[in-house]
Design a protein around this nucleic acid. Sequence first.
DNA 1: GCCATTACTTACATTTTTGTGTGTACCGCA
DNA 2: TGCGGTACACACAAAAATGTAAGTAATGGC
Lengths: 122, 122
Amino acid sequence: MAQRKLTSTNTANREKLISFCGMTYAIDILGGRWKLLILYKLEGRVLRFSELKKHLPNITDRMLTLHLQELEKNGLVIRKVFAEVPPRVEYQLSDSAMQLAPIWKQLEQWGLEHKARLEEET
Amino acid sequence: MAQRKLTSTNTANREKLISFCGMTYAIDILGGRWKLLILYKLEGRVLRFSELKKHLPNITDRMLTLHLQELEKNGLVIRKVFAEVPPRVEYQLSDSAMQLAPIWKQLEQWGLEHKARLEEET
DNA sequence: GCCATTACTTACATTTTTGTGTGTACCGCA
DNA sequence: TGCGGTACACACAAAAATGTAAGTAATGGC
C-alpha cells in the first residue's frame, strides 16, 4: 500500500505469490479492508468521492483515497475529474471490474451461508 | 491474527464490516497472504503439515501454523491428530470449504484474464 | 545415552496497513 | 474580507501481519 522496502522477505514472498497464480494475483489487488466493498458500492452507478464516502461506514478520507488510487492503478475503477470549483471527481467500475461482479456475489452468498452454518453448530 | 487491542478503531471498524455483509465476512476469514492458497492446495486431498509446507513456496512453520489454526477455527479445514511419535497431523477441507472451490476457480480465471488485459494495454 | 523426526510454541524484530490531525487550492457568495 | 465546499496531500502514530531464530516433547533406532 504505502512504500515497501525492496529488500524485505515479506515483499519478495508476495511478489513470488502474485506471479504464482491468478488467484493470488486477484487476492493481491482485491485484498485489504475496503477494496471489494468499494467496488460493490460502485456497481451499476457512478459516484463521486463524497458520495462513496457516505456509503462506506467509518472510512476515512485517507483510506478511501489510497484504495481508490490502487484500484485505479490496477484497472478496476475509472476516475473522471471535472475542472470545476469546488472540485468534482467521479468514480465508476471498469469493464474488468464488472466481470468480477458475479463472483463477489457468489462470495457474498457463500459467506452468509457459511456464517449461518457455523452459528448453527454451536 | 495475533492479539488485538480491543480498544482500537481498527478492530472496531473490522468488526463492524464483518457483520455488515457476507462478502466482508468472507474476506475476513479468507484474507491474508496464504489462506486461499492453503485451501487451494488441499483441494481433493488430505495432506499433513510437512507435505502442505512443501507445496507452499517460502512459507514458514509459524505462518502455516497460524493460518491453519484460523482456518480450522473458522470451519474451513479439518485437523486430525494421530497419537504417534513423531507426531502426525492431517489436514483436509471441510464441506463448506469445498463449496467455495468453484468460486476460487472463477477468481483465479478472472485474475489471469485481468492481468493479461492490463499487460496488453501497455 | 545420543540423535533424528514432526508439528508445533515462544520471544522478538521488521514490514505493512490503517488511523488521526492538519493543511491547501480554487471560486462563489455574503 | 471571510467562509464554505471538495478532494485530496502530508507528517506522524498506532496496530496488525509477517518473518526469524530458537526451543520442546516423545520415541524408536543406533
